[in-house]
Design a protein around this nucleic acid. Structure first.
Lengths: 334, 334
DNA sequence: TTGTATGCGTTATCAC
DNA sequence: GTGATAACGCATACAA
């Protein structure tokens, strides 16, 4: 069964394709009568506009691409939902690609999206990508670019990031106020704006409180569960009694080590994580963590795309974080 | 900066677009020399094939659509990764849509994908969809359809499902062998093949063990965390000492109620879940659950699409489940 | 092996 | 307000 085209409708109605096209596109220069007639016939014949042909002719698509490291992270899947909530009503579809944190996958995703003529891209780059090289291609091709969460600042793009500095500051302050004395930091690699900012916030909180900053207890590997487990051992060796972790999976590893070694959390050791993954509230004790407002970031990123697309406005948005206080860092003050 | 087309390349080389098209498409009827020349020029000019034009001309795209209830479920995001692992090397892109368990969103996703001329769709329908009505449109439009996990059997499509019957059978048997005496079932709505099968497996395990089946302790609401919490209270009223839950979130609710009411798991009460969500191993006690092999399901679904697309082969695949034994149903035998 | 001609379905620019 | 015509970029049947 061949799909019905505007020509089919035109033929059935004894008019020309142009008129049908205009009517279906909502063009004003067509009489109410014929418009109604056409619309009825169209739905009667089960007509669906061929987006391929339409976009080819118009020179642009109503599709936006999104590239994230992985979709099974609470943060990214919520960003996606947030972006959809804005883009779909605006008539755009979202294509989602995963980079799996690999530069090569990211490069392929970019090429795919460009070939698909997307109107824009919302991207949070992979950890393997340490330069804006691949993304420059996007800009060069004239595709609207919005970076979120992890960004490069040497690109002509709108950006949406968390206020990682202030968030980390609050998280660390929370540990200080709970009475911990030697607070370490478990961060990610120092190429990324995200982890650089969180580390800065951590350091500022310590200095503001008149506490010494010791590079020995700033761990900068990566924020996996394994690393959390491993670095908790090292942190204890160095005499820490608390850790601000730049990720919940790392905090999870920390808590696992603590349980295995019968270290009481929060009594003997305090932990604050980042991201509010779905398991954070389920741990025992429940994990105090920094909420990232993923949905808002998705919405803002989508809105930033629309602003660039239709008004040529470039924006740099900062979304605040919120400390979710639970049990892992709430001991009695001494 | 206009994008380079095959005509641009042809012009630059003093040949015709057809030859360029053939060379770039890997057509054999073009000399090695000109092919090399064309390829070099193409990459030199930064040529990227316009998929819109190509697909419009060919009459089909290299895009596959996937519709899932939500992407932030471990199961579905792993299905997606599995499908990508097969489809990308085969030259297909995947567009992911969420139905949010709503019929209307699902319908819109289907329309979107059809308008985008996808070559096929991999779908697990929303819970609100209780009939194959919307999906019939897919088949009618000549789009290859693969259903997975949740399926309707009155459609011309390939299917990939878990062996929910056997899985539930094993899960229930595990509870029986652990010595629990009055084992209830917390299932989903009975319109869905998934929950019907799990319930059947549960019942069969009981009868095979010579135990009575009591409709009073078969709860069939839905498998949310709330319902788990709520129905745990009812299960206790009815004298249950164990529950096989058709979902981990429901099992989570069950365990929360138990903790709030100081009921020892697994000592006084046994729980087995389904899905192996990422939090299952992190609960205290850790949750014994049925693993769904999501990645395999994704791979199989993608392969089923390729088989239909290129060989016209319709397949109905059943993927086995695996019981992950942890602590929530392992008490000492009496 | 290469060139010529045509059309995929739609929209935009004319003219009427 | 409607119709005729061309063009978006590419791929293919046919001719050479």
């Amino acid at each position: 069964m061949a799909k019905t085209t505007i020509s089919d409708i035109a033929k059935a109605l004894g008019i020309t394709p142009s008129t049908v096209s205009r009517a279906l596109a909502g063009n004003s220069r067509v009489s109410e009568a014929t418009r109604m007639m056409i619309e009825r016939k169209a739905s009667e014949m089960g007509y669906e506009r061929n987006l391929l042909a339409s976009s080819l002719r118009k020179g642009f698509t109503d599709t936006v691409g999104m590239i994230v490291p992985r979709i099974n992270r609470q943060f990214f899947s919520n960003v996606i939902s947030g972006a959809e909530a804005i883009l779909n009503p605006a008539g755009f579809n979202l294509i989602i690609c995963q980079s799996h944190e690999r530069r090569e996958d990211e490069r392929r995703a970019i090429a795919t999206l460009i070939r698909n003529q997307v109107a824009g891209m919302l991207v949070s780059h992979s950890l393997e990508s340490t330069s804006s090289e691949s993304l420059r291609e996007v800009v060069d091709q004239g595709v609207v670019l919005v970076q979120f969460d992890r960004i490069f600042d040497d690109l002509e793009s709108s950006t949406v990031v968390n206020d990682n500095f202030s968030g980390a500051y609050e998280a660390t302050k929370h540990l200080i106020e709970a009475g911990y004395h030697r607070i370490g930091h478990l961060g990610g690699d120092d190429q990324s704006n995200v982890y650089i900012e969180r580390r800065r916030g951590y350091i500022k909180a310590l200095t503001d409180a008149g506490m010494a900053v010791d590079e020995d207890i700033i761990f900068g590997d990566s924020i996996t569960r394994d690393k959390g487990f491993y670095n908790m051992a090292k942190a204890l060796d160095k005499g820490c009694d608390a850790l601000y972790c730049a990720g919940d999976y790392a905090a999870l590893g920390v808590m696992e080590y603590a349980r295995h070694n019968h270290i009481d959390i929060p009594g003997q050791f305090g932990v604050v994580g980042t991201a509010n993954e779905n398991f954070a509230e389920l741990l025992v004790p429940s994990l105090t963590t920094l909420e990232q407002n993923a949905t808002e970031i998705g919405q803002r990123a989508a809105q930033a795309f629309l602003d660039m697309r239709f008004n040529g406005v470039v924006s740099n948005i900062v979304v605040s974080m919120k400390l979710i206080v639970r049990d892992s860092a709430s001991r009695q003050h001494k």
